[in-house]
């Protein structure tokens, strides 16, 4: 295992007007690690993820992917983004394409695979998330859990080195959360590096190698899952978190 972290975030800051959403956030993640960010709503967790893959441009700070700085990489960011698969809270499947074509699109247009290869790869990834039998369904014909699994397959198809999950189960009913969490666990077992933002504490403690507690744009506490739930900071924050949904 190399000693360069897959992803290193250094003093990331982002403000919207007077509102400081991120105040100098730093952390790093090595291959195979699973870092889970928890904390009250509106503490900048989702912004942090988007500042990592530059969907939101941070005001200052640096992000290193395999040691390369990417905040100021200009057009090269499109290449870096392929290495960072992203899963959105509300799926953002392309509504005009079937499940399989959702997965194929970037393979064709970004990776420039030929049609047959893209299709084969897409079907493989759908298989991995248990969605191969829904390949020809449109997003509007899928349940939330199914749609989220397709969107995970879509991100995985680009062969990312790290996956960014932005509250992947928040928009789902309890019974649908489970199927998405199972897919994420399977992915973790295969050694995928993951950064997850979530409100599901029970899932967080069983999934993470390290839990980060964020409050008002800062990391206020972090440590292995065994420590975090009993730490004073978490006990204080827990009151604000509302959902401690059982898996």
């Amino acid at each position: 295992m190399s000693d360069v972290p897959i992803l290193k975030v250094e003093n990331l800051c982002k403000s919207y007007g007077d509102l400081e959403v991120l105040k100098s956030v730093s952390f790093e993640i090595y291959k195979g690690e699973k870092k889970v960010f928890v904390g009250p709503s509106g503490t900048g967790k989702s912004t942090l993820l988007r500042c990592i893959n530059q969907l939101t441009i941070p005001d200052s700070g640096f992000v290193y992917l395999n040691g390369e700085e990417i905040v100021h990489s200009g057009k090269k960011i499109n290449g870096y983004r392929q290495k960072m698969g992203m899963v959105f809270q509300n799926f953002n499947l392309f509504d005009h394409l079937t499940a399989v074509r959702n997965v194929e699109l970037a393979l064709l247009k970004v990776k420039k695979l030929d049609k047959a290869a893209a299709h084969e790869k897409a079907m493989y990834e759908l298989e991995q998330v248990g969605m191969a039998d829904r390949a020809d369904f449109y997003p509007a014909q899928l349940s939330g859990g199914q749609a989220q699994r397709v969107s995970i397959a879509r991100a995985l198809a680009m062969d990312p080195e790290v996956m960014l999950f932005d509250e992947p189960t928040s928009a789902l009913d309890p019974e649908l959360k489970r199927e998405v969490m199972e897919v994420m666990r399977k992915l973790a077992d295969r050694g995928m590096t993951c950064i997850v933002v979530t409100h599901e504490m029970k899932f967080a403690t069983s999934f993470a190698t390290e839990i980060y507690l964020m409050e008002k744009g800062e990391i206020v506490e972090h440590g292995p899952p065994s420590d975090i739930p009993t730490s004073p900071g978490f006990v204080k924050t827990r009151a604000f978190m509302g959902s401690y949904v059982e898996e």
Binding site: L55, R81, Q82, M86, N92, L105, S151, M158
Partner: peptide, 18 residues
């Protein structure tokens, strides 16, 4: 068209044009 559609496209490495 919801903003998330373009965000998702860009998260896969597409240019804005694409």
């Amino acid at each position: 068209i919801k903003r998330g559609q373009l965000l998702a496209a860009r998260s896969l490495g597409m240019t804005k044009m694409q």
